[in-house]
Simulated scan of single mutants.
Amino acid sequence: MNADLHWFRKPATNGPRDKGTFNPVFELLDHPIAVGRGGEAFASGECELSYEDALDRAAKFAGIMRAVSEPAPQMLIVEDGLKPTALLLAVLGAMRVGTCAVIGSKGLTPRQKAEAPILRSASSAAMQHQAQAVAESQARAGMHTATRSLDTHFEGAELLADGPDSAPSAVDTLMKQAAFKHAAAEPLGPGRTLMRLDGIEVTALESLEAVRTLLR
C-alpha cells in the first residue's frame, strides 16, 4: 500500500484483491487546501494558479463533464492549441470524475473519435462572435461592457459535447453558468486509466506524477 496517499477506501478493506479507491485530483488539490495551503501557488510560469483557484476551475469543469453525460463520459479528447492553463485544468477536471483525458488521438477507434467529447481551441471567427455575443448580452442587461468578469482560464476554448459533428459551445460561457455545479472527486481504483498520451495509457496512480510533470 502507498502510505502517502489519502485513500477513500484503503486497499484490502474488502479482501486481498481490493485495490482501494482514491482520486488524484483530491490528492493534488483538495487535501493541500484542507491542511491550509489554499492560497499557495499550485502552478507557476505559464500557468499561474493557487490551489484554491485550480480546484475551483477544475471542479467546475468536472461538473460540465458530468452534465455532458451521466455518468461522466469515458474519455475527453483534448486537441492541440489550448493555452497551457486550460489544458491543465481540463485534464484535472476530467480526471476528477473519472474521465480519461486523451492527448493525441493515436490508438483511438473510429467510434471513439466520432462520439467522444472534444475540447479544442476555437477559431478566431468563433472567438470574435462569442465576444460580441457577451457584449450584447451585457448591454441588454444594462451593464457597462468594461465590467470586469471572472477569468475562467478557458477563454478561447470550445467543447463539442457529442463528437466532431456536434455544435461547439464556448467553455468560458459554460463555466460561468450556475446550472453547472462543481463536482466532487469520484472514488477511483488506482489502476483505472485516466490519461492517454499519444496512445500510452496512464493509470490513476501514475497520473499524479504525470500532472506534476506538466507543472514543471
Rank of each mutant, 00 (worst) to 15 (best):
L214D: 00
A179F: 04
A204N: 08
T213K: 08
S169W: 10
G63M: 00
L88S: 06
E27K: 11
A101L: 05
A131P: 05
C100T: 10
R57K: 10
L28T: 04
A116M: 07
E48M: 11
P24R: 06
Q177Y: 09
A43V: 09
R216S: 13
V134S: 09
E52V: 03
A135Q: 15
R120Y: 00
Q130S: 14
I118W: 06
R96V: 04
G45E: 01
M65T: 02
F180K: 01
T85Y: 04
I64D: 10
K113L: 03
K181F: 02
R96L: 03
V68S: 04
A184Y: 04
M75S: 10
I64E: 09
D4E: 14
P164F: 02
A210L: 00
K181C: 07
S124D: 14
G107Q: 09
D151S: 08
G38R: 10
V91S: 03
R96T: 00
R37A: 13
F180A: 02
A146T: 15
E209T: 12
F154D: 08
D172H: 12
G156W: 05
L119C: 05
L76C: 10
T109F: 03
I77Y: 06
L55N: 05
P24I: 15
S105C: 09
S137Y: 08
D162W: 10
A58S: 15
K181H: 13
R57Q: 08
A116V: 02
A184W: 05
K113A: 04
K19C: 06
M65F: 05
V97S: 13
F42Q: 12
T21F: 11
S121Y: 09
A3M: 10
W7G: 13
L194K: 04
P71L: 01
R148S: 09
A43I: 07
F22E: 06
A141T: 10
K19A: 11
I64M: 05
S166M: 07
D4C: 00
A126P: 03
Q128F: 00
R212D: 02
K19R: 12
T193H: 05
M143V: 15
F8I: 02
T147I: 15
P110F: 14
N2H: 11
K106D: 14
A59E: 05
S137R: 06
A12W: 11
A3G: 05
M195L: 11
L214W: 13
P32G: 06
K83G: 07
V68C: 12
M195I: 01
R57T: 01
I118N: 04
L88I: 02
M143E: 15
I103F: 06
D80L: 12
